[in-house]
């Protein structure tokens, strides 16, 4: 009797549960279930958040350390790459300069050159000289002409074993025999304290004009001929003077000289004994 009673309770319990489930799935218990589920979800949310915070609390420090290490590594890599970029840009600039110098040297195959870097400038404000990093050990000797791809720079004034001093054509004591191509006339180029170039001793018979090209004439034997010097800027012609003169826009920017070519196979002629004999 007792067993039957227990079985009935189980069956009723089972049927009630099944009915509850079926009613719930059928949607008849939605209102009741939502009232029951909402607080449960709230509790679930709170518990979940706290758990997440606890997990974060224990896991984040490790990640921060890792991130900091990664960040440091990346910063170091960026710094390294920046240094490489600066180095490459510098190399590129030097290559461009050397490439243009090479182009100039190829255009004049009869001459041999010694490439040199400009390492300093004469400390006296009265003088226009630069120092280069090639000396007698590299074959540089006194009075050799110095050029760049743009044109004439000057001549070697003093030499040590590993360096040399170059007198720029803009130096007040410098004079270069020049040839005005379009006017087919010779003249003498002089430097000045302001680094401006002037062509002087040009015959009054020729017409000097803006933009005319000026090259070395080769007269006097100090410089090879046909090296670009600059262009005529302003002509100074007075009727009562024997010669006319003109200011020149130099082909080379002497304030930013970085590399030069020393013309190695040119032997300058010393004509000063002849001039003294004439006197």
């Amino acid at each position: 009797m007792k067993r039957i009673k227990n079985s009935w309770r189980q069956i009723v319990g089972f049927l009630l549960t099944l009915g509850f489930i079926l009613l719930a799935f059928s949607g008849y218990l939605t209102t009741m279930l939502s009232g029951l589920m909402d607080p449960m979800i709230g509790i679930q949310t709170i518990v979940s958040e706290r758990f997440s915070n606890i997990v974060t609390f224990f896991t984040i420090p490790r990640e921060v350390t890792q991130l900091q290490a990664e960040n440091q590594a990346l910063l170091e890599e960026v710094a390294l790459l920046r240094t490489e970029i600066i180095q490459l840009e510098q190399d590129l600039r030097e290559t461009a300069i050397l490439y243009s110098l090479l182009g100039f040297a190829r255009g004049r195959p009869q001459e041999t050159y010694i490439a040199a870097k400009v390492i300093g400038k004469d400390p006296s404000p009265f003088l226009q000289y630069v120092l280069i990093d090639k000396g007698s050990d590299d074959g540089v000797t006194f009075d050799m002409p110095v050029v760049t791809e743009k044109g004439l720079v000057g001549r070697i004034d003093a030499v040590t074993a590993s360096a040399a001093r170059v007198q720029l054509i803009t130096d007040p004591a410098s004079s270069v025999n020049a040839y005005v191509v379009e006017a087919d006339s010779n003249g003498l180029i002089r430097g000045s304290a302001t680094s401006d170039l002037t062509i002087d001793l040009v015959s009054q018979d020729v017409t000097l004009a803006f933009g005319q090209t000026i090259q070395t004439s080769g007269l006097g034997g100090k410089y090879p001929s046909e090296i670009m010097i600059g262009q005529v800027l302003n002509v100074n012609r007075l009727e009562n003077e024997l010669f006319q003169s003109a200011s020149i826009q130099p082909a080379e920017d002497f304030s930013s000289l970085q590399a030069v070519l020393v013309v190695a196979n040119f032997r300058p002629s010393n004509i000063s004994p002849l001039l003294e004999k004439q006197r």
Partner: peptide, 16 residues
Amino acid sequence: EVAVFSRLQILYGTAD
């Protein structure tokens, strides 16, 4: 002086 100050000019003056 040779590498730096000779190139830092005011007008045509340089520091010694």
